[in-house]
Design a protein around this nucleic acid. Structure first.
Lengths: 201, 201
DNA sequence: TGTACATCAGTGAACGCGCGTTCACTGATGTAC
DNA sequence: TGTACATCAGTGAACGCGCGTTCACTGATGTAC
């Protein structure tokens, strides 16, 4: 039952996309090759026509997940190429919608603590993803220092990961809203609408 | 080969302790019951004399890991029961030593992203651990607001988890030191050695 | 205190299961003439 | 353009393996008298 080259390429693409979703939703250990192939309507056997090993798929799916999600909130660049204000990034990243839909969200909170046990190629991909997100933050916080940016990155990832892990609804919400409130105040305090007003003039 | 009641209790205790270490080091999916029993010098069969199931051990080992680690840096209480200053908590939690020894460290960064896939009892235990750590932070930051404390909690967990996940040594260090630098400045800015100095007196 | 027996902590083999990977096979697609 | 053949995407069964759990067994410990 050979398929055309286009069909085959599409199968491969769909498998990577499905894996990128499933891994974020259930974790790297929670998804088998059979799960991924079933998701694209095929059986396990065909997998090895497209990928050398399970690990190869994991690495590729991670890369794809980062690409997808940085087109979303993390990119912080709008349709006209302007950096989006930090408020938008905070509101999107630290939203209940993001917390409740890991399959379509940022791979960082979904996979952080599994990653130290992964093979080098996967960790390399992940590291690139962290750098990408840091660049997004830099674009969105022109006035902030390097330390604040790293602390913000850690805070975003930690808040979403914790909000997903915890089982108390109130705490799940507070983790997001308080973290959002803190950084919004910190990073938009000056409120320079036109110019900063002099202190007593 | 029956053992005395004391020996049996010690076996159980040692198994929980070993599991608490192994789970933090290798993740919940990376440790089998055989691994845990081998660590205490026994074979798999004996396991079910002490625990109802694997899941029961996971929940208990999580609780134990939190108890251990809150006696360490997270407690923020010294030998005389005084709350330790926030600098000490930051320096310990965001240290290379903590990053490089997950087996003895805080379970939060070690297990966060695996937790949303765990059974209810494990998540409940974990949630308690998050609350404990938040209380530790509250004791160490008497002047801070609720939002800052949640943001700090998220930042601590995120920074250590990311620092472990990433494979670039420079970034591994920056995640810790910049996050530490940011919060130290934020939370100890006033520098009131004795009293705050009046602005122009 | 001493003896007889029940208990049960730990052993090690066995179970069913799901996993990653391999393989002989099939038949539509691609290619050479 | 038409035909003959090689290619190879996908199938489905099989493999070896490690896992969580069960079980008959063992012999030291605990208990009843």
């Amino acid at each position: 039952m050979r398929r055309s080259r286009e069909d085959a390429a599409e199968t491969r693409r769909a498998a990577v996309e499905a894996a990128a979703r499933l891994y974020r939703a259930r974790g790297l250990e929670g998804v088998s090759i059979g799960d991924v192939m079933a998701e694209v309507g095929m059986t396990v056997g065909g997998f090895y026509r497209h990928f050398e090993s399970r690990e190869a798929l994991v690495a590729e799916a991670c890369a794809r997940a980062f690409a997808e999600s940085s087109q979303g909130h993390a990119a912080a660049v709008d349709a006209r190429g302007r950096a989006q204000p930090i408020e938008v990034l905070l509101a999107r990243y630290l939203s209940a919608a993001h917390r409740d839909a890991p399959a379509a969200g940022c791979p960082l909170p979904a996979l952080v603590s599994e990653l130290s046990h992964q093979a080098p190629p996967v960790r390399r991909t992940f590291t690139e993803g962290v750098r990408d997100m840091l660049h997004g933050i830099e674009r969105a916080t022109p006035g902030a220092g390097a330390e604040a940016r790293l602390a913000l990155l850690a805070s975003l990832v930690g808040a979403v990961a914790l909000a997903r892990a915890v089982d108390d609804p109130a705490l799940r919400d507070r983790l997001l809203s308080d973290t959002r409130g803190y950084w919004k105040r910190r990073l938009t305090k000056p409120r320079r609408r036109r110019r900063p007003a002099k202190r007593s003039a």
